[in-house]
Amino acid sequence: SSRTRFTDYQLRVLQDFFDANAYPKDDEFEQLSNLLNLPTRVIVVWFQNARQKARK
């Protein structure tokens, strides 16, 4: 499967949200999905990866 290429804007929004809340609710994932024009699944995985990185 091909990797999603995030724009700088998408990454900034995701990172800002993550800094405020590492565990979004379903409706928040949906809002981010609509805002960033990305599939919810891609955003869910991004947050999983970000939490892994933050733990190191």
Rank of each mutant, 00 (worst) to 15 (best):
W46M: 01
R51S: 06
T4L: 09
N37F: 06
N37E: 11
F29H: 04
L14I: 09
L14F: 01
S2W: 06
V13H: 08
N37Q: 09
Y9N: 10
N34H: 04
L38N: 01
L38G: 01
R3D: 15
D27I: 08
L38K: 03
V45N: 14
Q31F: 14
D19R: 12
N34S: 13
D8K: 11
R3W: 14
D16W: 02
R5Y: 15
V45Y: 07
A22W: 11
A22E: 14
I43S: 01
K25C: 07
L36H: 00
D27L: 08
L11H: 07
P39D: 15
F29L: 11
N37G: 11
S2V: 13
D8A: 09
S2Y: 14
A50F: 08
V42M: 11
R51W: 05
R12H: 13
D27N: 10
L14A: 02
T40S: 13
R41I: 13
L32D: 02
V45P: 07
D19E: 14
R41S: 13
R12K: 14
Q52P: 06
Q15M: 08
S2A: 05
D27W: 08
I43M: 04
D8Y: 01
Q52Y: 09
F47R: 00
L14Q: 03
L36F: 02
L38R: 03
W46S: 03
A54G: 14
L38C: 04
A20M: 06
K56C: 15
D27E: 10
D27V: 07
T7W: 02
R55K: 12
F29M: 06
R5A: 15
P39H: 08
L11R: 09
S1Y: 06
D8E: 09
P24E: 01
R51P: 00
D26N: 08
R12F: 02
F47K: 00
D16M: 05
T40D: 05
V13F: 06
L35F: 04
E28I: 05
L32M: 12
R12P: 01
V13D: 02
E28Y: 01
R55L: 12
A50I: 06
F18C: 08
P39K: 07
V44G: 13
Q10I: 01
P39T: 07
V42T: 15
V44R: 10
L32E: 00
D8F: 03
F17T: 10
D19C: 11
K53H: 13
N34F: 02
Q52V: 14
R3V: 15
D19A: 12
K25R: 13
R41P: 11
F29P: 00
N34R: 09
Q31K: 13
D26A: 06
T4K: 02
Q15R: 07
D26Y: 10
Y23D: 12
F17N: 09
A22R: 08
T4N: 15
F29R: 05
T40L: 10
F6C: 05
E28L: 02
Q52A: 12
P24Y: 01
F18T: 01
N49G: 13
T40A: 09
L32K: 00
W46L: 00
P24M: 01
L38D: 00
V45R: 12
A20S: 10
V42D: 13
L38H: 00
F47T: 03
Y23N: 13
R51G: 03
L32T: 04
Q52S: 12
N34K: 14
L11Q: 14
Y23Q: 12
Q52L: 10
D16I: 07
F47L: 02
R3H: 15
N49Q: 07
R5T: 15
F29A: 05
L38E: 06
A20W: 05
R55W: 05
D8P: 06
K25V: 09
Y23F: 14
K25F: 05
L35N: 12
R12A: 04
P39R: 06
N34L: 08
E30G: 05
P24R: 02
S2Q: 10
Q52K: 10
T40Q: 07
K53W: 10
L14D: 01
K53I: 12
R55V: 11
F29Q: 04
D8Q: 11
N49A: 07
R5N: 15
F6K: 04
L32S: 01
L35H: 10
V45K: 11
S33H: 10
K53G: 12
A50K: 10
N37R: 11
W46T: 03
K53E: 14
F17C: 07
F18N: 02
L36P: 00
K56P: 12
W46R: 01
E28D: 15
N37S: 10
N49M: 06
Q31M: 08
S1G: 15
V13K: 12
P39Y: 00
V13S: 11
V45A: 12
D16H: 13
A22L: 09
T7M: 04
S33P: 03
V42A: 11
D26K: 10
L35Q: 05
P39Q: 11
S1T: 12
R12S: 08
D19Q: 06
F47E: 01
F6Y: 11
A50T: 10
R3A: 15
L35R: 14
T4R: 04
D8M: 07
Q48W: 03
N21T: 12
T7F: 02
F18H: 06
A22F: 05
F18M: 05
D19I: 02
L11N: 12
R3N: 15
R55G: 09
A50E: 10
R41D: 15
P24C: 02
A20L: 07
R5W: 15
V45S: 12
N21Q: 06
S2T: 15
R12D: 13
L14Y: 00
N37I: 06
S2F: 07
T7I: 03
A54V: 12
L36G: 00
K56N: 14
Q10T: 02
Y23I: 14
K56S: 14
D16L: 04
D19V: 09
Q31S: 10
D27F: 06
S1E: 15
P24S: 02
A20T: 11
L32I: 08
Y9S: 13
F29G: 01
D8H: 06
N49S: 11
A20R: 14
E28R: 04
V42P: 13
S33Q: 03
K53Q: 09
N37C: 12
F29S: 04
V44D: 14
Y23T: 11
T40E: 05
R5F: 15
L35A: 10
L14E: 01
V13N: 06
L38V: 07
L38W: 01
T7L: 05
L36V: 13
V44M: 11
Y23W: 13
A50D: 00
F18L: 07
N37W: 03
P24A: 03
Y23S: 11
E30M: 15
Q15S: 07
V44K: 10
D26Q: 07
N37D: 11
S2L: 13
S2I: 15
D8W: 04
V45I: 11
Q48A: 08
T7A: 06
F17S: 12
D26C: 03
A50W: 04
F47S: 02
L32Y: 07
D27K: 09
S33L: 00
L14T: 01
R55Y: 10
R12I: 05
N21D: 05
F17V: 09
L36R: 02
Q10H: 03
N37H: 12
V44S: 14
F17I: 02
D27C: 06
F18D: 01
W46A: 01
Q10F: 03
R5E: 15
N21L: 00
F17M: 11
L14H: 00
E28S: 06
Q10Y: 01
Q15W: 07
D19N: 11
Y23V: 10
E30V: 10
F17Q: 04
N49R: 07
D8S: 09
K53M: 12
W46C: 01
V44A: 09
Y9Q: 15
N21R: 06
F47P: 00
Q15T: 09
K25A: 10
Q31L: 06
